[in-house]
Design a protein around this nucleic acid. Structure first.
Lengths: 156, 156
DNA sequence: CGCGCTTACTTGACGCTTCAACTCATCGCG
DNA sequence: CGCGATGAGTTGAAGCGTCAAGTAAGCGCG
C-alpha cells in the first residue's frame, strides 16, 4: 500500500479507539433490545417502520431498500419472511408489472406501533440522555463531516 | 412497552439520524477497504493484529476472543480458517491441556504488516482528517459518555 | 409489430455468526 | 485415588446477507 502511511498520534488513537468501541457496541445493544422486546431485527424494524409511514402504508421494493439502507436482494428475502409471518403483503403494481409493491398489514402495523416506543426509549437512554444538548449538536456536526468523506454523494 | 415513551425532538432526531447513518456506513467502508486490499475481514484483521502484538506472537484463544470483541466460538471458526490459509497455528498449552494457544506464522505476520498501513490510512482519511483536533477531543468525550451508558462495566 | 435491451425483482448457493451440544482436561473433595 | 463439577475449546446445524444468475415485464427502434 502507501509507502507513506502515518501512524496515529496518541490522542488521535484514543479518539479512534473510543469511536471504534462505539461503532461496535451501540448497534449491538440497540439490536438486542429490539430483538428481545419485539422479535424483530433492526432491518426488519426499519422496513416495517418505513412502510407504516408511507402513503397507503405501501412502498415499492427498490424505494424501500434505499430507505432501509440495504440491497434489493436482502430486502426481497426479508420481505418474504415478513410476509410469511403475516406482517406485509406483496402485489405487483397495476401500471407496471415489473414493480412489486409491499404493503404493511394490520398485524404488521401493530407490531411497529408496539416496538417503536421501546426502541425510541433505548435511543434516548443510551444516546440522548448521555449527552448535553451542546454535545448533541457537536455530534451531528461531527457525524455529518465524517459521512461527507465516507459517502460524498449523499443529500445534506 | 413503556406507556410513557417520549418521542424525539426535532434536533434530537436529526442528531440521531446522523449518528445512525454513521453507525451504518463507516464500518462498511472500513471493512470494504480491508477486504479489497488485503482479503481480510475486520475481525480477521483484529485477530492477526492482536497476535502480532502479543509476546511470543501468541495468545490463548479466550484472551484473543476478548481482545477482538467476539465469542470464543466465532474465534474458533475464524482461527480454523486462518490456520487453513497458513496465517496462524494452534497448539495446546504445555502446562494445561485445556488451553489452546494460537500463534501467528511469518506469512500471517507479513499479512498484517502489509494490511495495517492501508487500514490506518483509511481511518485517517475518513475520520481524523474530517475533523478538527478540537472535534476529535469532543468525539472522544461523547463516545465515552455513550459507552458508559451502554456498557457500564468497562474500563475507562 | 417484433426483437433485443433495460429495469425490477426473485431465487439459489455459499460463507459467516450464533446457539446449543459435545469433548476433553483439570480441580476439588471425600 | 476416584469421580463429579467446572473450565476451555470445538463442532454442527440453522439463519441471515451477499453475490451471481435467472425471470419477467416494459421500452425503443427498425
Amino acid at each position: 500500500m502507501a509507502g507513506e502511511a502515518k501512524w496515529l498520534e496518541q490522542d488521535e488513537l484514543a479518539s479512534w479507539m473510543s469511536l471504534a468501541a462505539l461503532l461496535f457496541k451501540l448497534p449491538g445493544v440497540l439490536d438486542f433490545q429490539l430483538q428481545r422486546d419485539s422479535g424483530l431485527s433492526h432491518f426488519e424494524y426499519l422496513v416495517l417502520a418505513g412502510l407504516s409511514e408511507s402513503p397507503g402504508r405501501s412502498r415499492r421494493m427498490s424505494e424501500l431498500a434505499g430507505f432501509a439502507n440495504g440491497s434489493l436482494s436482502r430486502l426481497s428475502h426479508v420481505v418474504k419472511r415478513l410476509e410469511q409471518r403475516g406482517f406485509v403483503e406483496r402485489h405487483p403494481a397495476e401500471d407496471d408489472g415489473r414493480i412489486t409493491v409491499a404493503t404493511i398489514t394490520d398485524a404488521g402495523y401493530e407490531m411497529v406501533v408496539s416496538a417503536a416506543p421501546g426502541h425510541v426509549t433505548a435511543v434516548r437512554e443510551y444516546v440522548i440522555d448521555a449527552l448535553t444538548p451542546e454535545q448533541l449538536t457537536q455530534l451531528k456536526t461531527i457525524a455529518d463531516q465524517i459521512l461527507a468523506k465516507v459517502d460524498p454523494g449523499r443529500p445534506c
